[in-house]
Amino acid sequence: MHADVDAVVLDIEGTTSATGFVVDVLYPYARARFGALLAARGAEPEVARAVAQVRAEAGEPDADAARVEEVLGRWVDEDRKATPLKTLQGILWAEGFARGDLVSHFYPDVIEVLRRWHADGVRLYVYSSGSVAAQRAWFAHSPEGDLLGLVSGLYDTENAGPKQEADSYRTIASSTGVAPERLLFLSDRPGELDAARAAGWRAVGVRRAGEPYADADFGGHPRAAAFSQISLAARSSS
């Protein structure tokens, strides 16, 4: 498919990268380290704020560290897109990437296409349920090295809002300064595509074999099985 846009906003899980890597590698990595993080660094502002959010969301204001760890584990099992969970996972993943314990996953068609779009003047952004810290580590530690230079901005559920709400996409459009009709969102989840379209964006469903939403109903959204099937034409915003 062909799109005449100024910027592309990328989902990660199931779109640029395999859900299986996140579920089978990243989730267990963080889960095994929640307890140590809470014990050693519970007083750090970012950790303390996330713990307070866990207690509030769980309705347990007096939950101790062991109970908070238990709640986090349950949320992982539920694949819950809770902001404090994503914050704490992001802290641990960023450290794991920095230590070399982790290297991110990208589908084979993605990095080459992102480099081409960037070279052609298309601005690239990321919008993921994973925290901005996790996104930054993900792109900085790819199998082909640091890709952060390709990305103009990072958005998550904290600085933009929930991914299935149109207002979140309006927030991102305002932040980027790109007109909604000149923004293209790529995601594997129909609900996210619907929300982007409701905010006036263009949207393409990425249908990758073996992903949880591969057989989902994408409604009237154009679909692509790989980024190489998407042709873009950028227009100068000046």
Rank of each mutant, 00 (worst) to 15 (best):
E70F: 09
T83R: 14
F218S: 00
A32I: 03
G161A: 11
S104A: 13
A39Q: 14
D146N: 12
G205F: 02
F218K: 01
R115T: 05
I111A: 08
A173F: 06
I91H: 08
V71C: 05
G130M: 14
A65F: 04
K86T: 07
F218G: 00
G14H: 04
A224G: 06
G35T: 12
L183T: 00
A216K: 03
K81Q: 04
V23L: 15
Y125F: 15
Q89H: 12
G191K: 10
P190V: 06
A196T: 09
L102K: 08
P212W: 07
V25C: 06
R207C: 10
L150D: 02
L37F: 04
E70Q: 15
V51D: 01
S236L: 10
A50T: 08
P28R: 11
S231N: 10
G96W: 03
A216W: 03
S236K: 10
L183D: 03
L85C: 11
G177P: 00
L232Y: 02
G153H: 02
Y29G: 07
L92T: 05
Q89T: 04
A140T: 02
Y27T: 10
E46D: 14
D167K: 14
Y169Q: 03
W75S: 05
L26K: 10
I111V: 14
F139V: 02
F185I: 01
R223P: 00
A140S: 12
R223H: 06
A160D: 06
A50D: 13
A66S: 14
D156L: 06
R55D: 11
P222T: 00
D101A: 15
A160V: 01
L184P: 01
D194K: 13
V204D: 01
L88P: 01
V71Y: 06
D62R: 14
P45I: 14
A65R: 13
R189C: 02
E181T: 11
M1R: 14
L38E: 09
P212M: 05
S128C: 09
A195H: 03
V9M: 09
V51I: 09
R41A: 12
R170H: 09
G145F: 01
G200L: 03
R55F: 12
P143E: 09
S174D: 11
A198T: 08
H141L: 07
A36S: 14
A226F: 03
L10W: 15
T19W: 12
D77Q: 11
A94H: 07
Y107R: 05
T157C: 15
E57D: 15
E144P: 05
R197I: 01
R80L: 14
E158R: 15
P143N: 10
V71H: 04
L114I: 01
